[in-house]
């Protein structure tokens, strides 16, 4: 069976690019829904912002930089040349996925007898 590609989708935005590429690799489908059409400068700007973010990360990775640690710095310096990315970082910059998992079991095991 040929290989499958991982897909990331659901609430992801350009500011999370370092983590997305770190966790899923470079052969990945990134589906930015809200992260594209919710961009304050318009949908095309949203697409541009995402594209600039992924290109900047790949460029930095190829040059040998630690894109995981320096990811935010790379995005911020890329945003200097791209107003769309700057707007995306301003809008969603502090959104992360730190929340209580909804997947925890809610069954308490009690000993019988």
């Amino acid at each position: 069976m040929p290989g499958t590609m991982p897909v990331a989708s659901g609430g992801i935005h350009a500011g999370q690019m370092p983590q997305l590429l770190d966790y899923l690799g470079e052969d990945v489908i990134l589906q930015f829904g809200g992260g594209t059409i919710g961009h304050p400068m318009g949908i095309a700007a949203g697409a541009t912002a995402n594209r600039v973010a992924v290109e900047a990360m790949i460029k930095a990775r190829n040059e040998g930089r630690d894109f995981v640690r320096e990811g935010q710095d790379i995005l911020v310096s890329a945003a200097k040349h791209c107003a769309e990315l700057q707007a995306a970082l301003d809008t969603w910059g502090d959104i992360s996925f730190n929340y209580e998992s909804t997947d925890t079991p809610d069954v308490m095991s009690t000993p019988t007898a």
């Binding site: 983590q19 770190d22 966790y23 899923l24 690799g25 630690d66 995981v68 996925f97 730190n98």
Partner: peptide
């Protein structure tokens, strides 16, 4: 998302 501290940089994780 947080990354583990002290982890060596892994490069893109998926093996080619």
């Amino acid at each position: 998302m947080t990354t583990q501290d002290g982890a060596a940089p892994r490069g893109f994780a998926m093996p080619t």
